[in-house]
Design a protein around this nucleic acid. Structure first.
Length: 519
DNA sequence: TCTGGGGTCCTTAACCGT
DNA sequence: TCTGACGGTTAAGGACCC
């Protein structure tokens, strides 16, 4: 009674980069790198064309530019990726109620639970239809792994990439795994891999031979047991739809290290506000406030404080974060700051009033106890919770249209300035930023995207998902005809229209993608 | 120009109460 | 009363994943 290979793992190929290529016809077949573009940015996703140059995720963008100077470097556009992801996940949910998303571009599906397949042939069939379906809906390719467990399905999809399908027949898993590197197992990263290598273990087969006791001794209880089972191909974790979030956090890495204590305090306050904004948006409150500080030498400290009860009051989180910061030595400089909240409860707006009260009282310890106990029944009208009103407004200044902020955290001061009145920057007031990859619309030329900018100019390529590669034009940064716009759907109202296939050599357009003023 | 951002889970240590 | 074992909670750090 071995399990039929009806656990499916789906992995979209080079997802962010593929979406960009689908959205920007001139980039198809070109090296595309999506990630942070600042001096400390890293690559989130590289297209397969870029990987041929040795570029891969998690590599510093600066290094990627050295390896692949002619690639197109773009900031991530999460709103668009999320929209595409929703289309894909909807396809999966049509197959089974048991869909477990791992990220925007990956998910497990229990086909048997949905009645979509009960044996190898059925699973293969379903998976091929799914891949075709996803391609039709999004224009993107996906790789699929099928096996009797999550771990093996994932190993299979890895082997299927790109644009493939691989099914591991029950009974063959041990032989299949044995020669593979220990690093192919989920949970074995650089540290554990190196640890095992020093013990002379490099393959999954050797891992299995080592035995459970030995592995537990080497890597600890939980890890060792899991490792041994995986090495044998054993994995009975179920596919679970809907898992609750356990924490919410935000962090920013700065272009240059921060030294000024006042500035550092200010940034922590901003991060606390942002964090609470996200916390509330998710309908949660939380009990433990965490401050994260990465110093100039990359050493990372965290400090946390657990409150008496959960809160979603920005003032409370700000103050806790400020307190935690006071205990940290920042001489030498700070490269990253972060604020998080964990110990989540799904308290929502009604509890705000009670929370604020409880916290105000928190200093007076004895009474706080009584407060926490108070029934949540005292639901205050939202309008009355003064603090509530205030931070709703504060939260509202963030999501100003595009979520572009995600791409350029480091320039937060400038970027946040778009909607906020708080920009203290006196000079160059109308200076707009046009990060590479941004969607724009021009009054005369229509939709396009920013290919690069610098020295007061911005270069835009006018094309859209359904169109042939478009042509490039350069404008002044403050051109009134030019404005940011929302992304267009990848597949949709096929704008049939003018299919003017003029030559307009799109070639070498990618080269222009470099945004740096360097050129 | 070294090394993002958002998470999860595990381990260890300290501390408290039984 | 002293001591030890043990469990739960909190805090800090680390590994890992996409």
């Amino acid at each position: 009674m071995r399990a039929a290979p009806t656990i499916l793992h789906l992995d979209m190929d080079a997802f962010y980069a593929s979406v960009e290529q689908a959205a920007k016809p001139s980039l198809r077949g070109k090296a595309v790198i999506v990630g942070g573009l600042g001096p400390r940015g890293v690559v989130a996703t590289a297209s397969y064309e870029a990987r041929r140059f040795g570029v891969h995720s998690a590599m510093p963008t600066a290094q990627a530019r050295r390896l692949c100077p002619n690639g197109a470097y773009l900031i991530p556009r999460f709103t668009l990726y999320r929209a595409v992801s929703d289309l894909v996940m909807a396809r999966l949910r049509a197959l089974s109620p048991l869909v477990e998303p791992l990220s925007l571009d990956e998910a497990f599906v229990d086909l048997e639970a949905g009645g979509a397949a009960f044996d190898s042939a059925g699973a293969r069939d379903t998976a091929e239809r799914l891949r075709a379906d996803i391609r039709a809906a999004t224009g993107l390719s996906a790789s699929v792994g099928l096996a009797g467990s999550k771990m093996l399905a994932k190993v299979a999809s890895e082997g299927a990439k790109p644009d493939g399908l691989l099914l591991i027949e029950p009974g063959t898993e041990r032989e299949l795994l044995a020669p593979m590197s220990v690093r192919t197992l989920p949970g074995v990263g650089p540290a554990t891999g190196e640890h095992l290598r020093r013990a002379g273990i490099t393959t999954v087969g050797e891992l299995a031979d080592a035995g459970e006791d030995e592995l537990v001794r080497m890597t600890g209880r939980a890890h060792g047991v899991a490792l041994y089972r995986m090495a044998l191909g054993l994995d009975d974790r179920p596919v679970v739809a809907e898992r609750d979030a356990k924490s919410v956090s935000v962090e920013d890495t700065f272009d240059v290290d921060l030294h000024d204590r006042v500035r550092i305090r200010g940034e922590v306050q901003r991060l606390a506000e942002r964090c609470v904004g996200r916390l509330r948006a998710s309908g949660h409150s939380g009990r433990t406030i965490v401050l994260k500080v990465r110093r100039y030498d990359f050493s990372t400290l965290t400090r946390s404080e657990t409150l008496r009860g959960p809160t979603d009051d920005p003032a409370v989180v700000r103050e806790a974060a400020a307190r935690l910061l006071e205990g940290i030595d920042t001489t030498g400089g700070v490269r990253l700051l972060g604020v998080g909240v964990s110990g989540l409860a799904d308290y929502t707006q009604e509890d705000l009033f009670a929370q604020a009260e409880a916290q105000a009282e928190a200093e007076a310890e004895a009474r706080a106890q009584a407060q926490a106990q108070a029934p949540a029944g005292a639901r205050a009208p939202v309008g009355e919770t003064d603090s509530g009103g205030a931070d709703v407004a504060a939260g509202a200044q963030g999501p100003n249209g595009a979520d572009g902020g995600a791409g350029a955290p480091v320039r937060a001061e400038a970027a946040a300035g778009t909607g906020a009145a708080d920009a203290p920057v006196g000079e160059s007031p109308q200076e707009r930023r046009w990060p590479a990859g941004t969607d724009v619309r021009h009054g005369e030329y229509g939709p396009g995207w920013v290919q690069g900018s610098g020295v007061g100019r911005v270069t835009v390529r006018f094309e859209r998902p359904g169109s042939p590669p478009g042509r490039v034009r350069t404008f002044r940064m403050d051109d009134p005809e030019l404005e940011p716009s929302d992304p267009l759907p990848l597949v949709g109202e096929a704008d049939g229209e003018h299919a003017k296939g003029d030559g307009e050599h799109a070639e070498e357009g990618a080269g222009g993608g470099r945004s740096g003023g360097g050129g």
